[in-house]
């Protein structure tokens, strides 16, 4: 069947030098391409991290601003009053004292604070 095989299968011929040059050029081109793809992937991941960091920073900033500026819930109110109760400063009234004064004034003069028509 394959009487030619042993005689011709392993025959060798001279290869022009340009063949290797072209293979080498192709391999280098592919290496460059791979490097570029790797670099692009790393850049994309880094960019995602930066965007995520910036977004989370902005969100965090807004949340802090909201927390400090507005008292919206009842729990916050009670927390503030509790804190006020605890303050024992010369320049501030005690909250219970304030309430007492308020009730005394209202009892003596119920129209206090209301406009006369």
């Amino acid at each position: 069947m394959t009487e030619f095989k042993p005689l011709h299968q392993d025959h060798q011929v001279e290869v022009p030098r340009r063949v290797w040059n072209q293979i080498d050029a192709k391999l280098n081109e592919q290496k460059q391409k791979r490097k570029f793809i790797r670099l692009r992937t790393i850049s994309a991941v880094a960019a995602c991290f930066v965007i995520a960091a910036v977004l989370s920073y902005i969100k965090l900033g807004f949340t802090q601003y909201n927390d400090n500026s507005f008292v919206t819930t009842e729990s916050y109110k009670s927390m503030i009053f509790e804190n006020l109760d605890k303050v024992n400063d010369d320049f501030m009234y005690d909250y219970s004292q304030l309430q007492e004064i308020n009730s005394l004034v209202l009892n003596d003069n119920p129209s206090f604070g209301k406009r006369n028509r």
Binding site: Q12, V13, E14, V15, V19, K26, Q30
Partner: peptide, 30 residues
Amino acid sequence: SPMLFSVAKRYLKNEEDAEDALIEAFFKIF
């Protein structure tokens, strides 16, 4: 390459085609 070039030359009449085939083949091999 000398042995593989002889293979390519047996299939392709044109020497340039054989060289091209060898270049592509080695690129695939690597």
